[in-house]
C-alpha cells in the first residue's frame, strides 16, 4: 500500500509482459501464430512466384536456389503455394471461430443468467448439435451449396457453437455467482451493464484460450475437408488440397507431401500452444 500511485499501473503492465515472456507455451505459440499470420499478410501482396503460375519446363523439380522448396506436378512453386495457403487457413480458422463465438458467446451468457425453460432448450439443442460432426455437416453443405471455402467456414463454425455455449456458460456462472454481482444489482446496475463490466472481462481469457484452441482444431478440420474435396477447390491452394494432389507422388517426391503436412502441424501446434499459454497465465494469476 506504500507503492507510489501511478507507478502501480506501469509495474502491473510490465509484470504482465514479463509473465508472458516467461511462459514457454505462450511465447512459442505467439511466435508461431505471428509468423503464420505475417506470412498470410505478405502473401496477399507478394509471393516468390504466382501460386497458380504453371511452368511446364520445371515440373516436380527438387529444392533449388530458384525454387527453395521445389515445384509440383504443374511446375507451380511450392513455397508460394504454401504461403498463399496460409491466408486460406487464417480465413477459414478466423471466420469459423468468430462465427461460433458470435453466436455461442451470447447464448452461453444468456443461459447462465436465465435458468428458465428457454435456457434448458438452448442447452439441449447445444447437446444435440454437439454430437453432430463437422465432417457430416460439411458433406451436407457441400452437397447443398457446392464445395467451397465458405462451405467449410459454415460447417466448422456451426459445429463449434455448442462448445462455445458450454464454455461460456460455465465460466459466466462462476462470475454470476460472485457476491459482487449481487452487490452491483443492489446499486442498480442492470444485467446488460453487469455483463459488460464484470462478466466479459472475467471470462475474457477463457474465451480467448478457447478460441485459440478451436482455431487449431479448425485448421485440422479444414485441411481434412479440403483433402476430401469438400472445401477449397483446386486450383486454389490450401494445405489440404496440396496434400491431396501431392499424395500421388508420395513414392517419388515425398517432400511434396512433407511441406503442407509440416505447415498443418506447425499451425495446429502454434494455436494450441497459444491457448495453453493463455490458460496457464490465467491460472498463475489465480484465475483472474
Amino acid at each position: 500500500m506504500t507503492l507510489l500511485a501511478g507507478k502501480v499501473d506501469e509495474a502491473q503492465r510490465r509484470s504482465a509482459f514479463r509473465r508472458w515472456r516467461a511462459n514457454p507455451s505462450a511465447l512459442l505459440g505467439t511466435v508461431i501464430v505471428g509468423v503464420i499470420a505475417l506470412t498470410a499478410l505478405v502473401s496477399l501482396v507478394w509471393t516468390p512466384y504466382g501460386p497458380l503460375a504453371i511452368d511446364t519446363n520445371h515440373t516436380l523439380s527438387a529444392m533449388s536456389a530458384s525454387h527453395w522448396l521445389g515445384t509440383d506436378e504443374y511446375g507451380r512453386d511450392t513455397l508460394s503455394r504454401l504461403m498463399a495457403s496460409c491466408k486460406i487457413t487464417m480465413y477459414v480458422g478466423g471466420l469459423s471461430v468468430l462465427f461460433a463465438t458470435a453466436i455461442g458467446l451470447p447464448l452461453g451468457i444468456w443461459s447462465a443468467w436465465n435458468k428458465g425453460w428457454v435456457s434448458q432448450l438452448i442447452l439441449r439443442a447445444a447437446d444435440v448439435l454437439y454430437g453432430f460432426p463437422a465432417l457430416l455437416a460439411a458433406s451436407l453443405f457441400a452437397a447443398a451449396f457446392g464445395a467451397s471455402t465458405n462451405t467449410v467456414v459454415l460447417a466448422i463454425g456451426i459445429a463449434y457453437i455448442p462448445v462455445f455455449v458450454r464454455v461460456t456458460r460455465s465460466a459466466a456462472l462462476v462470475i454470476l455467482n460472485a457476491e459482487y454481482v449481487l452487490a452491483a444489482l443492489a446499486y442498480g446496475r442492470r444485467p446488460f451493464a453487469i455483463v459488460r463490466k464484470h462478466v466479459l472481462p472475467g471470462i475474457g481469457s477463457i474465451i480467448v484460450a478457447q478460441m485459440s484452441l478451436l482455431f487449431s482444431i479448425a485448421v485440422l478440420a479444414e485441411s481434412g475437408l479440403d483433402y476430401l474435396g469438400l472445401g477449397t477447390a483446386p486450383p486454389n491452394s490450401s494445405w489440404g488440397t496440396m496434400l491431396q494432389s501431392a499424395q500421388n507422388y508420395l513414392s517419388s517426391d515425398a517432400l511434396l507431401c512433407l511441406w503442407p503436412s509440416l505447415a498443418i502441424v506447425l499451425c495446429v501446434l502454434g494455436f494450441s500452444l497459444l491457448s495453453e499459454g493463455v490458460s496457464e497465465l490465467r491460472d498463475e494469476r489465480g484465475g483472474r
Binding site: Y180, A186, K197, G202
Partner: peptide, 18 residues
Amino acid sequence: RRSVQIVFQDPMSSLDPR
C-alpha cells in the same frame, strides 16, 4: 437502491478482482 445497501460475507468474492 440509493437508500439500502449491502455488505456480504465473503471478502474474496465481494469485490471484482479485475
